[in-house]
């Protein structure tokens, strides 16, 4: 009698819980870097429709954006992200190493080292290119005001920094020369925003600076959204192949019961529908079909990878951006 009463109660509770679970939309938090706001607004809608059609379940994806390094710090500090879609692998490595909420080999779990798209760094200049900016050398000339975010907090800024470094190193032949080159470049930076979107605001809306070292997609977006300002895009002779990665934050997703949908959310980034959305937002798709479709919208540029130039993100982070790295050596002296 006693056992049957308990079983009845458990069954009733389970039925109620089951009914409630069935009705509730699942919610994901995507913690991303600064310029991806518009991309993920469109992508989230596409994924929600895809997931609903596939499973019948409603999914709501909340977005959080900021400087990539800053966002990684927030996740390490406890921000309950189901997925992270950051500017560089080093930031997700930092989450894996410091918070231990995902395995250190997270990058192997999805194609292309978990980067569903690539991008690069270009220059955005004002109408008519009044300072005659053509390549990296023009950015260190006296009187040229350069806009780039803070590499301590922004993933985009780290790509910028390393692209400039490698350009100078190849041209002048040594790390010391590269360091001096970057020092001169940073001396021309009047405002250090914490993220790429902040730098866009500084250059585009506050009319500060002669040239903005920008994510390629951000530069095209600014050009498209502010046609009256006549911005021009200058593609440097050498730039870096940026591979923004994505990962499920395993421990958070497990606790929230969202592993399945979070994984599907990232996997769907590789679908043709998602790759088309990626191309529309001026990121470089990894699928051949979408890449071919959108190839004409990008200027030709010689690209190098972080691995070949700096031995990977871990080393680059340690040498240049950790406390006491080259950035601190240059910038603290400023």
């Amino acid at each position: 009698m006693k056992t049957s009463r308990i079983l009845s109660l458990i069954a009733a509770v389970a039925a109620l819980a089951g009914a409630a679970f069935a009705q509730k939309p699942v919610e994901l938090l995507n913690v991303s870097y600064d310029p991806t706001r518009e991309l993920y607004v469109d992508y989230n809608a596409a994924f929600a429709a895809h997931w609903k059609a596939k499973t019948g379940q409603d999914v709501v994806v909340k977005q959080s954006h900021g400087g990539s390094g800053k966002q990684a710090r927030s996740v390490i500090d406890g921000l309950r992200a189901d997925v992270v879609t950051l500017a560089l692998a080093g930031d997700i490595d930092a989450i894996a190493n410091n918070a231990r909420v995902l395995p250190s080999d997270w990058q192997k779990r999805l194609p292309n080292n978990s980067s569903p798209y690539t991008s690069t760094i270009v220059f955005l200049v004002r109408q008519g290119n009044p300072k005659g900016i053509k390549d990296w050398d023009d950015l260190v000339k006296p009187g040229v005001s350069v806009i780039t975010p803070n590499p301590k907090t922004s993933g985009g800024a780290r790509w910028n920094y390393l692209a400039a470094w490698e350009y100078a190193k190849r041209k002048q032949g040594s790390d010391e020369a590269a360091k001096e080159f970057v020092r001169k470049l940073l001396a021309n930076v009047p405002v250090l925003d914490t993220g790429a979107r902040g730098s866009t605001t500084t250059f585009v809306q506050r009319d500060i600076g002669d040239v903005f070292i920008s994510w390629e997609n951000e530069a095209y977006l600014a050009k498209k959204e502010f046609p009256g300002k006549g911005f021009e895009i200058v593609t440097p002779s050498l730039s870096i192949l940026a591979e923004p990665p994505v990962a499920v934050v395993d421990r958070v997703a497990k606790r929230k019961g969202t592993v399945e949908v979070a994984t599907a959310y990232l996997e769907y980034l590789y679908s043709e529908e998602a790759q088309d959305i990626i191309g529309k937002h001026f990121y470089r798709p990894t699928s051949k079909k979408a890449a071919a479709k959108y190839a004409s919208q990008f200027g030709p540029v010689k690209l190098f990878t972080i691995d070949e130039a700096f031995g990977g993100w871990t080393k680059a982070q340690k040498d240049h951006f950790d406390d006491g790295g080259t950035f601190d050596q240059i910038y603290l002296k400023k």
Partner: peptide, 17 residues
Amino acid sequence: DQKLKVLERNLEIKDEA
């Protein structure tokens, strides 16, 4: 004008921070 804008923007960033 640029200097003034830079000063204003830096103050803005400080406020945001």
